[in-house]
Design a protein around this nucleic acid. Structure first.
Lengths: 134, 134
DNA sequence: CCATGTGTATTGCTACACTAATACACATGG
DNA sequence: CCATGTGTATTAGTGTAGCAATACACATGG
């Protein structure tokens, strides 16, 4: 099953290490590879594996905690947080608003790439299918 | 018609000024508010209007030129570039690949916001409809 | 209680992002 | 040709992002 380690970083990718980690955790959570209640590998374990400073991993974990993705359990580590109730972050409308800036960016980039709306939609279909269905 | 100025920046938004400008130009181009052949307002004009240094505007314009969004016409300013031929940047497949990282980010964020795939799709429909139809 | 396991606070260093001041090169038109 | 309009190269200052070294606080289990 979990034959591979959860994380993989490219120090020279331009994207900072802690941010790569955050993105990967979010992706793992969204795709269902790690589920609410699961523990993430410890700060030092990840640091050792990836050969980075453990404070860098800690920074990633802390930011994830701030955003409610994981929760700290003292002495045990970081646990994936339960998914909040659908209404907890405001109405559907409000939550959609939060996604809007990112989608505008998608639209502008798609235009630049000369992709038709149909081509974009088929692509987003594909990506959404990767998600945990709930 | 163009009752309003093209640009608007929020210096304390966290996002750097030049990047805000870039995003807005891309959006204006994608939405058809400015079209190939149009000239952007001059570096100093924008700088005066927004009360920022003109070099900051120049940086934004230069990066847009590097990305092929606008082209420099010596002595006259920055002109919106013609849209490249559909095949010029590789196959549809290849161009879709370039959009993928951004879409994964959308997916992860949508999950976190507890938005259903249907809700995301309806939203992206709306955003894509704003685009210049070509 | 101590050894060992969590994550964290503090501090400091280095590199670079961001912005700006200044001087410049090129084009246009009176 | 010179005044005025483009955008740009160069340089410098300020802040902070990113990472790491160290020491710490809390929890668990022998």
């Amino acid at each position: 099953m979990a034959a591979d380690f959860l994380f993989q970083v490219f120090p020279n990718s331009g994207l900072p290490i802690y941010r790569q980690l955050i993105d990967q955790v979010r992706h793992h959570v969204a795709s269902g590879r790690v589920k609410p209640g699961d523990f993430l590998p410890s700060v030092r374990q990840v640091a050792l594996e990836l050969e980075v400073n453990h404070m860098t991993v800690s920074k990633a974990y802390s930011l994830l905690e701030r955003d409610g993705v994981v929760e700290l359990v003292r002495g045990q580590g970081m646990r994936v947080a339960p998914r909040p109730a659908a209404s907890e972050n405001g109405s559907v409308r409000e939550r959609q608003e939060k996604l809007l800036p990112l989608l505008r960016q998608v639209a502008a980039e798609a235009y630049q790439l000369n992709l038709s709306t149909a081509q974009v939609k088929s692509l987003i279909d594909r990506v959404l299918k990767e998600l945990d269905q709930s």
